[in-house]
Measured scan of single mutants.
Amino acid sequence: HHHHHGSGALAALHAEGPLAGLPVTRSDARVLIFNEWEERKKSDPWLRLDMSDKAIFRRYPHLR
């Protein structure tokens, strides 16, 4: 159930192989992290948004 927010940013994801479903670039990863943060913020208003490279690598090590 993907609803768009204002920016309408869509992340490019790997379609197949071992990385299927994972973001292709760091900016794609940022979109995913932001979208998930927006969702989680509803139940956790104090949740901090962390889109640093460090956060991205921790989450998606293949982007190193």
Score class of each variant (00 low, 15 high):
V24D: 01
T25N: 08
P18M: 08
P61R: 02
L47V: 14
A15I: 14
G17R: 02
A55K: 06
R59H: 06
A55L: 11
L13K: 04
R64H: 07
M51K: 04
L19F: 13
K41A: 12
P18L: 08
Y60H: 01
L32F: 05
L63H: 00
R26S: 10
K42T: 07
A20Q: 14
I33Y: 02
E38I: 10
A11P: 12
H14Q: 03
F34G: 02
P23C: 01
P61D: 02
N35Y: 07
R59G: 02
A12G: 10
R48G: 07
R48M: 10
L63I: 04
G8P: 10
L63Q: 00
V24W: 05
V24A: 05
S43H: 12
P18A: 09
K41T: 09
M51F: 07
L10P: 14
E36I: 06
D44K: 12
L49K: 01
R26G: 04
A9N: 14
H2D: 12
A9F: 14
P18N: 09
H2C: 08
W46Q: 09
D53S: 07
E36M: 06
R59S: 07
H3D: 15
H62Q: 01
H62A: 12
H62R: 00
F34N: 04
H62P: 00
A11D: 03
H62I: 00
V31D: 06
L19K: 05
Y60Q: 00
A12S: 13
R48W: 09
S52Q: 03
S43Y: 15
A20H: 09
M51A: 06
D28W: 03
G17M: 04
S27Y: 15
G6S: 12
S43T: 15
R48H: 12
E39K: 06
A20D: 05
W37R: 01
R58N: 15
F57E: 13
M51S: 08
A11V: 10
G17D: 04
H4G: 10
G21R: 05
L22Y: 06
H62G: 06
K42C: 05
G8I: 13
V31C: 07
R48D: 09
H3F: 12
H62Y: 10
D50A: 03
R64N: 13
K42F: 07
L63K: 00
R58Q: 15
G17I: 02
I56C: 03
A20L: 12
V24K: 13
S27F: 09
L32M: 05
V31L: 14
H2W: 10
A9E: 12
E16L: 08
A12Q: 12
P61M: 02
W46D: 14
E39H: 07
L22D: 01
A9K: 15
I33R: 00
T25Q: 05
S7I: 13
W46M: 14
S43L: 12
D44E: 11
L19H: 06
K54M: 10
R58P: 01
F57N: 11
H3R: 03
T25G: 15
G8L: 13
E38C: 10
S43I: 12
M51C: 08
L19D: 04
E16K: 08
F34I: 09
P23Y: 00
H4C: 11
K41I: 15
N35G: 08
L63E: 00
G6K: 09
R59Y: 07
K41G: 05
H1N: 11
S52L: 01
G8S: 13
F34Y: 14
L13Y: 05
Y60C: 00
P61C: 02
G6D: 08
W37Y: 12
R40H: 15
E16V: 13
A29N: 00
P18H: 08
S7E: 09
Y60M: 01
K54E: 15
A11Y: 08
W37L: 02
R58T: 14
S43V: 14
G17T: 03
H5D: 06
P45V: 05
A12Y: 11
L13C: 09
L32E: 03
W46C: 08
T25C: 08
L13H: 03
S27T: 09
L22R: 02
W46G: 10
W46Y: 14
R40T: 05
S27R: 14
S27K: 15
H1Q: 11
A12F: 13
N35W: 14
H1S: 13
K41D: 06
I56N: 01
H2Y: 12
A15M: 15
H3Y: 08
G6E: 12
W46K: 14
G21E: 03
R30I: 13
R26I: 15
F57G: 08
F34R: 10
H62N: 01
A29F: 00
H2G: 13
D44G: 06
H4R: 10
S7H: 11
A55P: 01
L32V: 08
S52R: 06
L63M: 02
L47H: 12
G8F: 11
A12K: 13
K41W: 06
L63F: 03
D28Q: 02
A55T: 10
R48S: 07
G8A: 13
V24E: 04
S7F: 14
R64W: 12
L13M: 09
L10Q: 11
A9Y: 15
W37F: 06
D28N: 02
R26W: 12
K54Q: 08
S52H: 03
S52A: 03
D50L: 03
V31F: 11
R30W: 05
L19G: 03
P18D: 08
L47I: 14
P61H: 02
D28E: 04
M51R: 04
H5L: 15
L49W: 03
W37A: 02
P61W: 03
A11W: 03
R58G: 10
A12I: 14
H14D: 02
R26V: 12
L10K: 12
P18K: 04
P45R: 10
H62V: 00
A11H: 05
K41M: 09
F57M: 13
H1T: 09
H14R: 03
L49G: 01
D44R: 06
N35L: 15
A9Q: 13
T25S: 08
E39P: 02
H14V: 05
A55S: 07
P18Q: 06
S52C: 04
G6A: 13
A12C: 09
H1M: 08
V24N: 02
S43P: 04
G8R: 04
D44H: 11
A29G: 03
R64V: 07
A11S: 06
L13W: 03
L63C: 02
G6Y: 07
A15K: 15
L32T: 05
P45S: 06
A55W: 04
K54N: 12
R48A: 09
V24M: 15
D53Q: 05
G8H: 14
L22S: 03
G17K: 05
R64E: 12
L63T: 01
E36G: 03
